[in-house]
Amino acid sequence: MNLRRIMMVLIFACTTILAGCQPLKVLDPKGPQARTTANVIWISIGTMAVVVLVVIAMFAYLIIKYRASKQEEDYEPPHIEGSLKLELIWTAIPVVIVAFLSVVTIISTFKVEDVPEGYSKEPLVIYASSSNWKWHFSYPNEDIETVNYLYIPTDRPVQFKLYSYGPISSFWIPQLGGQKYAMADMVNTLNLAADVPGEYSGRNANFTGEGFAEQTFSVNAVSPQEYTDWVEEVKTTADVLTKEKFGELLQPGHLGQSTFKGTHLTFSPPPENHQMGEKSTEKMDTDMNEMNMGDMEDMDHSNMSQ
C-alpha cells in the first residue's frame, strides 16, 4: 500500500511539474462527476503503476542475470516445460486486479451516469445540440437559447439533452465530467454539476469534418443568484429566435457567441428516441410536464412506452 501511495505522489509530482504547475484539466475537477472520474483515474494509475513496476523489475533482473556474456561458454540452458503452480499464480493475480478494477468501474459508471447526489434542487435541463461546427444550448424552462456558450448555476445538477443536426459529435466539458455523443437520431442524457464558480472550456471531441478543431464553447458556472440575473437579462435584451434565424445558424461554419429569447425546440424538436436504460426517466418526465409545451408531448409518450 505504501508503495502505491509513493508512486501516486511521484506520478502526480512529475505530471504537475511537467505541466508547468498547471494541473491537467481532467485531473482538476470542478464538479462531482469529474471528481468521481478523476478518483477512478488515480486509482487505476496507482494499480497499473504497480503492475508496470513489477513487470519491468522482473524483466530487468532476468535480462541482466541471464545474458550470454555473463555465462560459461558451454552452459546449456535447461528444458523446462512450465509450472502449473506459477502459471496459476500469474493467472490469479491479474484476475484479482481485474475484479478490483471492475468493482470500481461499475460503481463509478452508475454514479456518473446518474443525477449527482446531495443536491436539494431539481436538475436544470438544457438541450445541447450540435451543428457543423457550433453548439446550440436551449433552456426550455427559462425559454432562452445561446450559441457556443453556457451559463449554469453552481450547486445544482445540470441535465444535458444531447442531439445533433449533423454528424455524430461528442459533448465534453473536461473539468465537469466525461463526454457523451450527440447524434441526429437519438437524444442522450448527460448529468453534470459544477461546485466551483468559474469559466470552463468545452468542446466537441468527436471528429466532424473540416471545422471540427474550432468547435468549442465556454461554460460559465456562476452562483444561483447571478444565474437568475443572467436569465432575466437575456429575457429583456435578447432577440427572439425565429425559425429563419435558426436556419441561418445551422449553416455550416463558425459563429461567435450569441443569445436569443425563445428556443428552437418549439419549431425544430429533438429526435424522438431517448437513451435506453435511462435511470432518470421519471425525473425527465416531470421536467417535461413542467415545461408544459404542447409539441413535446410526442416525446413524453415515447418515454412512457419504454
Binding site: 513487470v55 512450465g82 506459477l86 502459471e87 500469474w90 493467472t91 493475480i93 491479474p94 484476475v95 486486479i97 481485474v98 478494477l101 471492475s102 468501474t105 461499475i106 459508471t109 452508475f110 451516469e113 446518474d114 444531447l162 461528442s170 466525461g178 463526454q179 457523451k180 455523443y181 447524434m183 437519438m186 442522450n188 442524457t189 437513451q275 435506453m276 436504460g277 435511462e278 435511470k279
Partner: peptide
C-alpha cells in the same frame, strides 16, 4: 462507451475488456 447505451451495458463491456488483460498477462510472464 459514450454513445449512451447506459451504465449497465457499459459495465458489462468494461469487464469483458479488462478480462483480456488476464490471458495477455499470462503471455507476458511466460
Amino acid at each position: 462507451f459514450t454513445m449512451g447505451q447506459g451504465a449497465l451495458v457499459n459495465s458489462i463491456f468494461s469487464v469483458t475488456t479488462m478480462v483480456i488483460a488476464v490471458p495477455t498477462g499470462i503471455k507476458i510472464f511466460n
